[in-house]
């Protein structure tokens, strides 16, 4: 992946650079930050995460499986316990709830992995170890023709370092 990488030490200059890059439409922008910053989220204005759909589907599958396994096994060996019905919904709700939480959480994690594209084998292109420390980073994916414009823009906003990545 070709592009230009800029490293910033200040949050406000990073945000200004993002806003201007979005206006200029010079290429796809990836922003790195040592932690979550709502200022960056607002500047990027990305769509809402779809992880919630994984959570919903996983939770529904889990609760269905929890009730199904309880009812099916109860029906398979129909022994009356404590005078309760074979398919007693109150005790089976506990199983349904626990399996809903289990499958819902695991599918949430799966959703996060799929959408965040992890695990990944390499972090090298468009990444700098400083971005997990005290620096913010902006990587603009663009060809050699637009690279000078991107470099100029990042430098104008006070990037500590600007370099081309290939």
């Amino acid at each position: 992946m070709q592009g230009v990488l800029g490293a910033f030490h200040h949050l406000d200059t990073t945000v200004h650079a993002i806003e201007e890059l979005k206006k200029a439409r010079l290429g796809d922008v990836t922003v790195y930050s040592p932690t979550i910053r709502h200022e960056i989220d607002e500047a990027i204005d990305a769509p809402n995460s779809v992880v919630r759909r994984f959570t919903l589907i996983g939770g529904l599958l889990g609760v269905s499986f929890g009730y199904w396994i309880s009812i099916w096994t109860g029906d398979y060996w129909p022994l009356v316990t404590g005078g309760k019905a074979i398919a007693s919904w109150i005790p089976y709700t506990i199983i349904g709830f626990e399996v809903m939480v289990l499958v819902g959480c695991l599918s949430t994690v799966a959703g996060m992995f799929i959408n965040a594209r992890i695990p990944r084998l390499t972090t090298t292109v468009g990444y700098d170890p400083r971005f997990s420390g005290g620096h913010f980073g902006i990587f603009v994916s663009c060809g050699a023709d637009k690279a000078p414009q991107v470099e100029a823009l990042l430098q104008k906003h006070g990037a500590d370092e600007v370099r081309r990545e290939a």
Binding site: T30, V31, Y32, S33, P34, I36, I40, D41, I44, A46, N48, S49, V51, R52, T108, V109, G111, M112, N115, A116, R117, I118, R120, T123, Y127, F131, S132
Partner: peptide
């Protein structure tokens, strides 16, 4: 990599 995509989905998860 601390990218905005990763943080966005991480926060929601």
């Amino acid at each position: 990599r601390n990218s905005d995509r990763e943080w966005r989905h991480f926060a929601k998860a």
